[in-house]
């Protein structure tokens, strides 16, 4: 799966959680999920579960803890799919 395709899916998953719709519309790999998109930190758990379901992967707690930006998520998923 291309990085572009993964990014598209990741953004789609983040959509219901992002309180800042503007930031989501202008999202880049550098966008911080919590401070940039204003996702409630407790909901990161649900976002990671949604990644697992959408991409058919498993994300351990240590890996999940390292995800801060959209790019971190895309690279993590890319790595799992490789």
């Amino acid at each position: 799966m291309t990085e572009e395709k993964i990014l598209e899916k990741v953004v789609d998953i983040l959509k219901p959680y992002a309180k800042d719709a503007n930031a989501l519309a202008n999202v880049s790999l550098e966008t911080n999920i919590l401070s940039g998109l204003k996702v409630n930190s407790a909901r990161l758990v649900d976002v990671v579960l949604a990644f697992e379901d959408a991409f058919g992967i498993e994300v351990g707690d240590d890996d999940a803890d390292k995800v801060e930006t959209v790019g971190d998520a895309v690279r993590l998923i890319q790595g799992k799919l490789a």
Binding site: K15, P16, Y17, K19, N40, R43, D46
Partner: peptide, 11 residues
């Protein structure tokens, strides 16, 4: 509820 509340709240 869907008209009143955001998607992440509804979940």
């Amino acid at each position: 509820a869907e008209a009143y509340f955001d998607a992440d709240l509804l979940m």
